[in-house]
Amino acid sequence: MVPVEMEVDDPRGWDFVDWVGPDASASIFRSLDDPADIVRAAAVSRSWRRFVVENEFSKSICLRICPEIANFTSAEEVSRSPPQPPHAESSHGVQRKALERDYRIYSYLSGALVSNSPSMDCILQCIGASSTDNFPDETIENTLIPHDRVKHRPSYWSSGGHDDPDTPETLTYRLNCDMCIVDEIKLQPFKAYFQYGHPIYSSKAVRFRMGHSKLPHGSDSFVTVEDENLMAIADENYVWTYTSPEFPMLQENVLQSFKLPRPVLCIGGIVKVELLGRVQKQEADDRYYICICHAQVRGRSLSPVFMVDTSDPAGYSVLKYLPDAKILRSEDAMLDDGSESLEWHSLVARYRRMRHLAIMNVLLGPEEFMDEDDIIGGVLMDEDDLGGMLEDDPFV
């Protein structure tokens, strides 16, 4: 714990940083692993705050927690009020303001990264699958339903058949926010109870990629009952900022949990599930298939307080910090009376559209897909069924 009782600003006293020296002090500060300790240190005195800000300790601890933060080329604070006209100031003053801004952004981000808020399923929509055996009956969209039977019919995604058991497949999903901490992914292989021997079409192993689309916002496309959306899943359309190790998959019809080695910051809200290798042949055609009946990406949203701009054609991303979004009301997100900055309103509106769609998917999806005797399709749905979306959400 950082000592706080020294009168470091008293000219008759002494300052720990000056006494130990800047190099040794920096080593001590960098050994702190709790973001709150960095904030407490900055509150000790003006000289300590200057030392913390100038050495960017808050950004350093963010990088240790989530190395994906290195993908941000810069961080910007987006105010709700329109920006003030710039006024002349020295280069030193400009640099000082930039350092203070970065300290505010990364100190708040570091606290959000280590928050113990509960996780939820973050999948919003299906972008596409690398192949589908019988579209649309065996579409990837079936993996969003937590049942392997719907209206007394099987519900699952099936790959195309292959003679080579090493042929991989992919499932690509859009999450419900730009910035999401992901710690776990769950997959359930499908058990073909209508085939002889009840075979289970699992993969040998799985791997996960996370990143963002290179396409402009608003031009995203998703699977529909008429369109497999195969063009959208090409790797050249994405920047992958994280790749997981491989995990073995069991040939069992259970929801299998794949816990990531550490929480991962998904920048841009795209997750690709790579299904590596096949283990089960279909007796009818003697070809290998992979079938998944349910998928979840478990994590927690950092939006709308944190958003990301990925519009740079070179694939760079800019972290956007919206401090005023912490105290939003639902009507604030919908009204535009001209008193808000255009960028703030645009970012919040984008988040609101995603949250609205996520809630509609949960509220209306069961009515369309569930059996009559599924209790979740009735009026007994509660906040847990909504994945925590009702709690402290200004957009509901």
Rank of each mutant, 00 (worst) to 15 (best):
E138S: 14
K151T: 01
D166R: 07
I140S: 08
S158E: 09
D164R: 10
F135I: 07
T170D: 08
Y156S: 11
L144K: 14
T172P: 05
S159N: 11
V150H: 00
Y173F: 15
Y156C: 13
S159V: 12
D164M: 03
P154L: 07
D166P: 00
H162W: 15
R149H: 02
T170E: 02
T170Y: 08
T167V: 06
I140D: 10
L144I: 02
F135D: 09
H147D: 00
P136S: 11
Y173I: 03
H162P: 01
D163S: 12
E138Q: 15
P136V: 07
T172Q: 12
T143G: 07
H162V: 00
D166M: 03
Y156G: 07
P165C: 01
T172W: 03
F135W: 03
V150M: 02
P146C: 00
N142G: 08
P136G: 06
T139Q: 10
E169L: 01
Y173L: 08
D166N: 13
D166Q: 04
P165K: 05
K151A: 10
Y156E: 05
Y156R: 12
P165Y: 02
H152K: 04
G160H: 15
D148E: 04
G160K: 13
P165V: 00
P136M: 02
S155I: 00
P146I: 01
L144E: 09
H147T: 02
D137W: 09
N142Q: 15
P165E: 03
F135H: 07
P136L: 10
D163W: 07
P146N: 03
V150Y: 00
H162E: 14
D164G: 02
T139G: 12
E141A: 06
F135A: 07
D137V: 15
R149L: 02
R153H: 12
H147V: 01
R149N: 02
D148S: 09
P168A: 02
T167M: 11
N142T: 08
V150W: 00
R149C: 01
N142L: 14
T143Y: 13
T170R: 04
V150D: 01
P168K: 04
P136R: 11
S159T: 12
D164F: 05
L171S: 08
R149Y: 08
G161R: 14
T172G: 06
V150N: 03
D137K: 07
S159Q: 10
Y156W: 10
I140C: 09
D164K: 06
L171W: 07
